[in-house]
Structures are given as C-alpha cells and as structure tokens.
C-alpha cells in the first residue's frame, strides 16, 4: 500500500528541533519527535500547549521559525506549493471540529476529495464511498446534511472522508473531545481498525489519557513547548517523573502550570486597570 516507504526506513514523520512562536509568544521550544510507520502514535498534553500546531506543521499549514519537519523523506517547510499539495493527498486529517462541508450531504462530503482528485466512474465512486461509510457504521445516514448529525456522527463522517483516498498517514485532532462514552469507544475502535486494516500510520493528538493508553503504540507527552516524556504506554504508566504523574493522574497544579503566562498577580491588582 501507500504506506510502504519510499525512503527505506520505518520513520514516517520526524521533527528536528522545531521552534515556533505566535508573535512573541513561544509555543514550541525545540521539539524533537519521530512518528513510526504503521503504528498509532499519541501526542498528549494539556490544552493550549501546541498540539494542534504540531499537526499543522505536518500538514504544512504553518512554517517553523527554526528546525525542520521531515515527512516521508521530504522536508515540509521547503516544499513548493505544488509538492505540498501532492504530499497532502497522501494524508488525511480529522479536525477538532470535523470541518465537514455544510452545503452538501454526507455522501457528497466523503466523495468530495475523490471527485477533486480522481476521475472515477460514478458506480465505482459510489461503491468506494459506501465502503467507507459502512466501515464507520453510517451507510444509512448518507443522505443527511452535516447540520443533522450529532457530534459523534460528524466525527465519524470526517473520519470516513479522511481515509477515502487511502492515505499513508491520518492525523486525528482531539478525536475524543466532547463525546459520550459509547461514541468514544466507537472512535477508539475505529482508529485501531483503520490503522490495522488499511496499514495506515496514525497520529492521535489528545488530552484524554485513558483513550490514549487504549490505542497508542507509542506516546509523547508535551508541555510548555517541549517533549517532557515519551515511551510505550506501559513505560509512561510506570514513570515516576513528577510532570508525567501530574498529567496522567490529572492533578490541577504542579510543574505544568495551571495559569496562562501573566505578570505577578499582586502587580496586576495594584496597577488598577492601567493597561
């Protein structure tokens, strides 16, 4: 399949010392990580640490201030637009919000990337879309409009759309956020199935620790712009590092700060609104 490598090793994505700031607020401060082929890699971290930002680097929607991102042997920040689009054809991304096209129905949403990129006869296209819909259990919902879907259903439709072109890599941005336990279990099962059945590599960005344990082969923990721990789920579970324990056990404050960066609280109060 497409997942078979062209550069001859089993690393699909590599971040090399990536630095990035929004304005003068640093988000990433030297991130190094590798994402192996054919596995599910989870990236965990508290809200607002730059997990979505990491995915945007892989997709080439942002450029780092310093460092490099290698995807399948290609340096993403250095690609020309055309090459970047060619690379993106081999990736699927599940957005935090689903990002379905709201003016067409479920069927057409999944058919959209196929229609844009391949000239398939209508019956073949139909079979392809129905196959993916069957996989996510929504074949019966194909005539619904996105506004008629629940959050969990929308996420599954978006998943079907992300894998319709059989990509080498699927990125999931917070696939579990805001779902009930049953839908969550469905998504967990689907991510595993997609990874194994289609021999796709998967990156799951999340802050749901239990779900990450359930699906990941390898995990990274990111906080304050840096990777603070990595390893298999078992290794992280056994880790005694304070920051790791804070996040894994869900303690409100600790080395990973609870507060957004600010001046000292007393100073702020004493300034009396002179901002």
């Amino acid at each position: 399949m497409a997942a078979k490598n062209s550069s001859g090793n089993d690393v699909l994505v590599e971040f090399r010392d990536v630095h990035f700031a929004y304005g003068d607020r640093p988000i990433l401060k030297g991130v190094n990580l590798t994402i192996p082929r054919g596995k599910v890699t989870a990236i965990l971290g508290p809200s607002g640490t730059g997990k979505t930002t990491l995915l945007n680097f892989i997709g080439g929607r942002l450029r780092p201030d310093h460092g490099d991102i290698i995807v399948d042997g290609l340096s993403v920040p250095r690609l020309r637009l055309k090459q970047l689009y060619a690379l993106r054809r081999r990736m699927g991304m599940l957005f935090q919000s689903g990002a379905l096209l709201t003016d067409i129905n479920v069927f057409e949403n999944i058919a959209f990337p196929v229609r844009e990129h391949c000239r398939l006869p209508e019956p073949v296209l139909r079979n392809l879309v129905l196959l993916k819909l069957e996989m996510v259990g929504l074949r019966g919902a194909r005539r619904l409009m996105p506004s008629e879907l629940s959050g969990g259903m929308a996420r599954r439709v978006a998943l079907a759309r992300a894998i319709v072109l059989d990509p080498m890599l699927v990125m999931y941005d917070e696939p579990f956020a805001g779902l009930d336990p049953i839908s969550m279990a469905v998504i967990v099962k689907l991510i595993g199935e997609v990874n194994d059945a289609l021999s796709i590599s998967s990156v799951v960005v999340t802050h749901d620790v239990a779900e990450a344990y359930a699906i990941a082969h390898y995990m990274y923990l990111i906080a304050d712009g840096q990777i603070i721990a990595q390893g298999t789920p078992e290794e992280l579970q056994a880790s005694q590092q304070v920051q790791v324990r804070q996040f894994m056990d869900g303690l409100p404050d600790g080395p990973v700060p609870y507060h957004y960066p600010a001046v000292a609280y007393e100073d702020d109060l004493l300034r009396g609104g002179l901002d």
Binding site: R88, F95, T102, E116
Partner: peptide, 14 residues
C-alpha cells in the same frame, strides 16, 4: 470560521 477552508487545504484542494 468552521474550518471548512482549512479542511479543503488538508484534502489537497486549494
């Protein structure tokens, strides 16, 4: 605002 444009970009549709 609903990330449909970002979604298209990631589907390699300009």
């Amino acid at each position: 605002a609903t990330q449909q444009l970002a979604g298209m970009e990631m589907m390699a549709v300009n």
